[in-house]
Nucleic acid binder design. Structure first.
Lengths: 210, 210
DNA sequence: GTCTATAGTTAGATAGAC
DNA sequence: GTCTATCTAACTATAGAC
């Protein structure tokens, strides 16, 4: 069962730089297979054949199929966190301006790398408990960064006095759910969607109320 | 691999009334297993053993594991559609009042039946193409119903002149994503969350803009 | 309608040649 | 580092007794 050819994204250099070319190719193949069919319905044969290797060759580069999944999910979570922690974003003074930039960047990343992002969100519970715990730690950092940006705006009066935790969760839901339906050949470019969701996020925080 | 005991919801009578008691028990067992471990990581043994049967007994009641999944997903989609099409909701005259009721009902259903809802959202692509097509048809009905409620309010001036398709999709994302994280023993009751998300939906449609 | 036993298939992972 | 060949285990589904 090969990967769905519609499942393409812009992920040329998502993997760790210290990995070899074959390893990176296997990860790119794996992420497409996992996104299309799920972790358990993907075989080591599928992953290897997409890069012209025999199933046995995979085990020279990775000790197990689960570790391939872990490498994909870890890279995705580290990359998106780095992307929204961009110094240019952190330096923004205005609370609304900063939150807008964060939501936009988070959305753009998920849209541009929607195949990897899909695996990051949907195959998470097929990791071993140890690996799962490592990813949860990264997710807590991301969530905390978002929540901090919302809380700052509430504290300085830029935003309405909302329930910070719940509104932050809603904002994250908006973006995370796009991994279910987003396609690069659809009507929304990643940047357009980023702008749109940043607008929506600020509407959730508008000072007046309706 | 048994179902996660935390994955409990209020699904006493979610299945078709013409099914026998054993069939309904198997579906309840299956939905918990699928929600906890995913379709392919769940074995027919898991499903059967949770109701004290041997794996072979499952095949007296269902022709295949895939059809068990289909029955779960079809029931879920039909139930939630019926829930939001409640005559009391359809009869509401005000556009804002009606949309609030729809979003609230949709959210309450997903929270109350979050285990089934999780399977409906996350295991969808493990159906056969034929069964998948049937579910997509039900989803189109649900999406169209939501979109119509938004469009009506935009047309009569109750809501801002938003991009109906995109805003509707965002509203659906809010609720659908809760299947990833919702737990009945958490701080939000289904009804509280329904109210909260109905408020958020109306903020996305507030006439003033920010 | 349930069981035990098992057929038939395929998976993840390894052995050993080159 | 890649291959062919294969081991071992597990799965879905069936056969046939009760």
């Amino acid at each position: 069962m090969a990967a769905d050819p519609r499942l393409r994204d812009h992920s040329p250099d998502l993997w760790r730089a210290d990995l070899g070319e074959v390893q990176r190719g296997l990860l790119s193949s794996a992420v497409r297979c996992f996104a299309a069919n799920g972790f358990h319905a993907t075989t080591t044969r599928d992953i290897a054949e997409c890069v012209g290797l025999s199933p046995a060759a995979l085990y020279v580069h990775f000790p197990s199929k689960e570790l391939v999944l872990f490498e994909v999910i870890r890279a995705g979570h580290e990359r998106v966190l780095a992307h929204i922690r961009d110094p240019a974003i952190v330096a923004l003074e205005g609370s609304a301006e900063r939150l807008r930039a964060i939501v936009s960047a988070y959305t753009v990343w998920h849209a541009r790398h929607h195949v990897t992002a899909r695996v990051c969100q949907m195959e998470l519970n097929h990791l071993t408990p140890e690996h799962y715990g490592e990813i949860v730690e990264l997710r807590h950092q991301t969530n905390g960064y978002f929540r901090g940006a919302v809380a700052r705006g509430v504290a300085d009066g830029s935003f309405a006095k909302v329930d910070v935790k719940r509104v932050t969760r809603a904002m994250l839901s908006l973006t995370i759910d796009l991994v279910r339906w987003y396609r690069l050949d659809g009507p929304d470019s990643p940047e357009q969607l980023g702008e749109f969701y940043a607008d929506l996020a600020l509407k959730l925080l508008a000072p007046d109320g309706e």
